[in-house]
Design a protein around this nucleic acid. Sequence first.
DNA 1: TTCAGTGCAAAAGATTTGCAAGCCG
DNA 2: CGGCTTGCAAATCTTTTGCACTGAA
Lengths: 147, 147
Amino acid sequence: MQYHLPMEQTRNKDNQFALLLKANNERVTSPRLIIFRQLLRGSPIPMAKLRVKSALDGVDTATVYRTIALFTRLGLVQEIGVGSRRLLELTDNFGSHHHHFWCTKCGKIVNFDDNHLEATLDALASRLDISIESHQLEISGICNACQ
Amino acid sequence: MQYHLPMEQTRNKDNQFALLLKANNERVTSPRLIIFRQLLRGSPIPMAKLRVKSALDGVDTATVYRTIALFTRLGLVQEIGVGSRRLLELTDNFGSHHHHFWCTKCGKIVNFDDNHLEATLDALASRLDISIESHQLEISGICNACQ
DNA sequence: TTCAGTGCAAAAGATTTGCAAGCCG
DNA sequence: CGGCTTGCAAATCTTTTGCACTGAA
């Protein structure tokens, strides 16, 4: 099996993952680890593909759904909308805060973050008199390579 | 039947709607008008509910799907993600540009817009060297009433 | 009149659920 | 060992498709 992260980092993440589960009285099982590692590969993945990939490792479809529901409940996974597709990815708990830019020409999805944007949102929150728990921005357009 | 807009405004919208269809060589049919008016009521609506409401007016489920696909193709309708739900609403072509704030406590969805935010996005676009076609921001948190 | 658009029914996919067996703690 | 998890299969729900008929232009 091949990882996008060096093995040492993967171990770290696996560890962090195990701790999070235990802290919530959830068991660390083989299917859960397999699915977590799939998500750890980085790019947002559609449920259908996650199901297929997990099946290769012997994980049943029903288990994938139950696991994603669990991960979501634990705030480990979130669903993002890119165009009309729904994709799954690890939340900021297991990565840095970011947003998505989707190139409508080549389909590439680029993560980005912007301090100024975050500041703008803070100001917005006080203007609207709300307290922000989370926010998600999706920008679509043409990337520099495609222009 | 009851509308959220005064009848005169509804007529205007119906008109605008008919023109858009005709401009795209699409026919103005009863099911399409029924579904359009449903969306015109304002708040984002899940497909399931739209299906049920349309059925009350005798519109078949398959037609609802085909119509929403058409409206999306014409840039009349967009799908937004609020929490884990997917909701349908008219695009900015039939309303003013806005984003969504979702109160996780009372479930209310509030539309808002912010000039400063738009300016920030413009700046971001030039920094990332991309050209933005559209953007969608979803903020979730607690509204002032629930605090 | 003509053919795009619709209803109906069936097919295809996606998601959920019940239950016996397996495995983590 | 005990009970949470899983795999498997069946049930549900959602979305798509084929086809004959209807109605908008």
